[in-house]
């Protein structure tokens, strides 16, 4: 198990053939909930493991930021998947996805309050106690802000990372989206985050829609996000950068060009 390095891509069944043919690829991420706990691994994923490509399970439904304790069965599944793919680490979000018996169907932001910090730290501790490998936490892109935030984004994230000892999964597109939608400066946030704790970074595409920038993962990566990748790498280059694409898959040549653009922006070797 080698840590994430260089340019990677989110493995999805729809692009498994494309991913399998990337000659320089050393790192993929897989949605943890999409990997079964028993039975064969998805075929393309098993082949990547045979090539010793690093696979990082990425949980999306743990709801670590929920006020209620994280579901032990979901943590156990993430731990099992980590072992199945011999992962060096796993990742999840600083977010909640369900409350009051209802599923939101997506990652929702926490209030940036002391109480929310307590809630997420308690759940991260519960998860860490059961996981066989380190956990990296990803701040999300939010379209909605809570009305009574006590902490700013940097203090909120830093306090959670300090108290849990977790690594940071920094999503550059989320930094762009939040800054754009809040009228804030993304570079000011980069300057205040503990960049030495970044295990790897996400990059994804998005689109303007109804006055908001949406982190869709189904559109091309905008120039502004690539520029922010450059700004991040100028401060502290993360060990790896991962392109997330979750639908409206473009022709292979376009996807290769996006991976190449990422490599260029970060000064990593091309994987295509």
């Amino acid at each position: 198990m080698t840590g994430p390095s260089g340019v990677g891509i989110g493995w999805r069944p729809e692009i498994a053939g494309f991913v399998a043919e990337l000659p320089g690829l050393r790192f993929v991420e897989v949605v943890a909930e999409a990997v079964p706990a028993t039975g064969p691994l998805p075929p393309g994923l098993a082949q990547l493991r045979e090539r010793a490509v690093t696979v990082v399970p990425h949980g999306v439904r743990l709801s670590l930021g929920g006020a209620e304790p994280v579901d032990p069965a979901r943590v156990a599944h993430l731990a099992t998947v980590a072992q199945r793919v011999d992962a060096p680490l796993v990742s999840e979000h600083i977010a909640f996805v369900r409350a009051g018996g209802l599923e939101a169907g997506h990652l929702l932001p926490l209030p940036r309050s002391r109480q929310a910090v307590d809630a997420v730290c308690a759940n991260v501790a519960r998860a860490q106690a059961e996981l066989p490998v380190p956990l990296a936490l990803e701040p999300i892109a939010a379209l909605v802000d809570w009305p009574d935030d006590e902490l700013d984004e940097a203090d909120f994230l830093t306090e959670i990372l300090d108290r849990t000892g977790a690594l940071l999964l920094l999503d550059v597109a989320n930094v762009h989206a939040n800054a754009r939608n809040r009228g804030a400066d993304p570079l000011a946030l980069l300057d205040r985050l503990p960049l030495e704790r970044v295990a790897y970074a996400h990059v994804a595409g998005g689109a303007e829609h109804g006055g908001f920038y949406h982190d869709t993962h189904t559109d091309p990566v905008p120039t502004a996000v690539l520029d922010l990748v450059g700004a991040l790498c100028a401060r502290q280059r993360p060990p790896a950068l991962l392109l997330e694409r979750d639908g409206h898959y473009p022709p292979a040549a376009e996807l290769r060009a996006e991976l190449d653009a990422l490599a260029t922006a970060a000064g990593f070797p091309a994987v295509t």
Binding site: A67, G100, P111
Partner: peptide
């Protein structure tokens, strides 16, 4: 926090 999260999801 639980009540406020539930209200937001609802």
């Amino acid at each position: 926090l639980a009540e406020r999260q539930a209200a937001l999801v609802a």
